[in-house]
Simulated assay, not measured.
Amino acid sequence: MAATQVIRSEWTKIRSVQSTVWTLGLAVLVTLALGALISVLSKNEFSKMSATDRATFDPTFISFAGMGLGQLAMIVFGVLVVSNEYSTGMIRTSLAAVPQRGTFLFSKIAVATALALLVGLVTSFATFFLGQALLGEHRAALGDPGVTRAVIGGGLYMALIAMFSMGVAAILRSPMLSLGILMPFFFLISNILGNVDATKQVGQYLPDQAGSKIMQVVARPDDDTPYGPWGGLAIMAAWVVAALVAGYLSIKRRDA
């Protein structure tokens, strides 16, 4: 089967499965809702902040406060895209139709990534404009230094999270096992490792800790991270490549 036919087939699969569509919608909704809430709270608390906190106030990053929760929906999307066929047994039919396993896997990932990137960019721009509107006089403008990079980076970050999840799902095959590892890792373990002094030097190189740097515009005085926004995104991209390569090797070497 030609690559274009495989891509068309994967697009049909994704849009015909309601769970994947709903998870993308949920990613948009929770990111917007939480970002709006934190923006309102930050505006109300601004007058009570210390001089240092006011000087390092990052209105752009504040509006992205919902990304941490929205990324969990992106993780679910990435896992379901790859592992649904294993849980239903349809993987045998798919591999019989497309024996070239690399073509099969990367066509699936390409379609899902394009969709995740589109949703991620729409979400990032929407949450930025909503957040800035709610921040009032404390808002940032899209043309301010570093802001456009941060907003576009937010969309890239969500797409990379989805891709990383696809790679892990290709390795583990089971949606429950994949989610059982990824959800607590990103929601709990990564935050602990990245914020505790004893483990911070390791935690700052984890995919979400490094990748989220792209969404920051104002650096804090105590921020000693040894990389910048694009460096952090590059570290995250390296994690994604490693996960996808491992996923490809797994699907190539193991039986369906």
Rank of each mutant, 00 (worst) to 15 (best):
G66R: 14
G68H: 14
G70Q: 06
G70T: 10
G70N: 08
G70D: 06
G70H: 07
Q71T: 10
Q71W: 05
L72A: 13
L72W: 12
A73Y: 05
A73W: 02
A73R: 02
A73L: 02
A73P: 01
A73F: 03
I75K: 01
I75R: 02
I75G: 00
I75M: 08
V76C: 07
V76I: 13
V76T: 03
V76W: 05
G78P: 02
V79P: 00
V79Q: 02
V81W: 02
V81E: 00
V81D: 01
V81F: 00
V82G: 03
V82M: 07
S83A: 10
S83Q: 00
N84P: 09
N84T: 12
E85M: 08
E85A: 11
E85W: 11
Y86V: 04
Y86G: 01
S87E: 12
S87H: 10
S87T: 07
T88F: 05
G89P: 11
G89L: 10
M90A: 13
M90T: 13
M90S: 15
I91H: 11
R92S: 11
T93M: 14
S94C: 09
S94L: 10
S94E: 12
L95S: 03
L95T: 04
A96L: 14
A96H: 05
A97K: 15
A97P: 15
A97M: 15
V98T: 15
V98W: 12
P99F: 05
P99N: 08
P99Y: 04
Q100Y: 09
R101I: 11
R101D: 04
R101C: 01
G102R: 12
G102E: 07
T103Y: 08
T103G: 09
T103A: 11
F104C: 03
L105M: 12
L105P: 08
L105S: 10
L105N: 07
F106C: 06
S107G: 12
K108V: 07
K108M: 06
K108F: 06
I109G: 04
I109D: 06
I109F: 07
A110S: 11
A110Y: 04
A110V: 05
V111C: 04
V111G: 06
A112K: 01
A112S: 00
A112L: 00
A112N: 00
A112M: 01
T113F: 12
T113W: 14
T113E: 12
T113I: 09
A114G: 14
A114N: 12
L115P: 04
L115V: 15
L115D: 08
L115C: 13
